[in-house]
C-alpha cells in the first residue's frame, strides 16, 4: 500500500450536506460526509444504492442539477481551492484538470454521431494546443491499450469495455491529478471488469494519479484502494486502510455489509444479511442512521449522534458508540 505517499491532499470534503429539493419535497442525499484523498492515493467509497455515494462524486465537480441540488453545509476543496460556492463557469477551473470523472455507462456520455478520435481530440484541445491533437490522441489511445484504428470508429461500433477505455482516454486527455470513477465496471462482464481495473492500476502507477473509486462491490474496492470510506444513508460511517476496515470492521453496518458481500453462511444454513430497511432521507438524521437496523444498539445510541471515533491503527475511524472509550471501559 502506498498510503498517503504524494504529500498534500488533492481533495478534501468536510461535513458535507447535500439536498435535492423540488416541488416542496427534500431528499437529504448526503448528510454528513467527510473524506480526503492525498496526491497519488487510491481511495474507495463503498455503499448500497441510495447511500449518497454517487451524489458525493457528482457534487465534487458541480455535476448535480443547479437549483435542485443544494450544498446545505460543509466544504469541498480541490487542490486547496474551495469550490463549495462555485457556480456556472467557475467549475471550468477544476473539471478535467485537476479532476476528471468517468461513469458507469459510457454510452450515454459519448456522442453517438462523432468519431471517437474527434471526441478524444476535443478533450485534448481544452488543455493542449490544436497542433498537438493528433499525436496526443494517439498517445492516449496507446495509454488505454486500444488499437489506434479505434480513433476512426463510432461509439456504437465498440464493445462495452472498449467504450469505457475511450472514456478513460478522454478523462486522461486533461492530465488529471485525481480521477473520480463512479461504478466504472458495474455494467461490464467479469473478465472485462478485471481488465479495466488492471488498466486503472497500471495507469495510476505510470501517471502517479490519485483515484476516487466509487463502487457497491467491496471485492473490487478491496484490491484497488489504499483507503476506503463506508457510506450509509448519507453519512461516512467508517474509514481507514482498506484491508483493516474490511477485515476488522468496527461499525455494525460495515460488518453486516462485509458479511453479505462474502455470502457468509450462518449456522442455520442461511446467508448473513442486514435486516430492516434503509431509512428515509426526507429529513436529516439526528441519531445514528443505522440505529433502526442495528443489533448492538444501546441507550446511548438513542441520545446522541456518535462522532468519528478512533477504531484502530492507521487512522481507522468509525461513527459508533460501541467503540467509545466509556463503552469499552464499561465492558
Amino acid at each position: 500500500m502506498t498510503g498517503a505517499a504524494g504529500g498534500g491532499a488533492i481533495l478534501e470534503v468536510h461535513a458535507l450536506h447535500v439536498t435535492y429539493e423540488s416541488a416542496g419535497r427534500a431528499v437529504h442525499a448526503v448528510q454528513d460526509a467527510s473524506l480526503s484523498v492525498a496526491e497519488g492515493e487510491a481511495v474507495g467509497i463503498a455503499g448500497e444504492s441510495g447511500c449518497g455515494k454517487s451524489t458525493l462524486a457528482r457534487v465534487l465537480l458541480g455535476l448535480v442539477p443547479a437549483g435542485i441540488a443544494h450544498i446545505r453545509n460543509g466544504r469541498i476543496a480541490i487542490g486547496g481551492v474551495d469550490v463549495t460556492g462555485f457556480a456556472g463557469r467557475d467549475w471550468e477551473q477544476v473539471r478535467g484538470q485537476p479532476v476528471a470523472i468517468v461513469f458507469q455507462d459510457p454510452l450515454s456520455f459519448l456522442n453517438p454521431v462523432m468519431r471517437v478520435g474527434d471526441q478524444i481530440g476535443e478533450a485534448v484541445r481544452r488543455h493542449d494546443s490544436a497542433a498537438a491533437v493528433p499525436a496526443r490522441s494517439a498517445e492516449l489511445v496507446d495509454l488505454v491499450r486500444l488499437q489506434r484504428s479505434v480513433l476512426r470508429r463510432y461509439p456504437h461500433e465498440l464493445s462495452g469495455g472498449m467504450r469505457q477505455r475511450v472514456m478513460l482516454a478522454i478523462a486522461l486527455g486533461c492530465r488529471p491529478r485525481l480521477l473520480v470513477a463512479d461504478e466504472p465496471t458495474t455494467a461490464l462482464d467479469a473478465t472485462t471488469e478485471a481488465e479495466i481495473l488492471a488498466l486503472l492500476r497500471e495507469l495510476r502507477r505510470e501517471l502517479g494519479m490519485a483515484m476516487l473509486l466509487i463502487s457497491h462491490d467491496l471485492g473490487v474496492l478491496r484490491w484497488n484502494c489504499d483507503r476506503i470510506y463506508i457510506m450509509y444513508a448519507g453519512h461516512t460511517v467508517e474509514s481507514g486502510a482498506t484491508a483493516e476496515v474490511l477485515s476488522r470492521p468496527a461499525h455494525p453496518y460495515t460488518r453486516g455489509l462485509a458479511g453479505a458481500a462474502r455470502l457468509a453462511r450462518l449456522p442455520d444454513g442461511h446467508f448473513a444479511m442486514i435486516g430492516g430497511d434503509v431509512p428515509r432521507l426526507e429529513r436529516p438524521a439526528r441519531l445514528c442512521p443505522f440505529l433502526s437496523r442495528c443489533d448492538a444498539a444501546m441507550a446511548r445510541c438513542r441520545e446522541a449522534m456518535p462522532p468519528a471515533l478512533p477504531a484502530g491503527a492507521n487512522g481507522h475511524q468509525a461513527r459508533c458508540w460501541l467503540i467509545a472509550p466509556a463503552h469499552r471501559e464499561a465492558i
Partner: peptide, 9 residues
Amino acid sequence: DVSIRAQLL
C-alpha cells in the same frame, strides 16, 4: 444490493 441479495437467496 448485497444486503438484498442475501435476503433473496
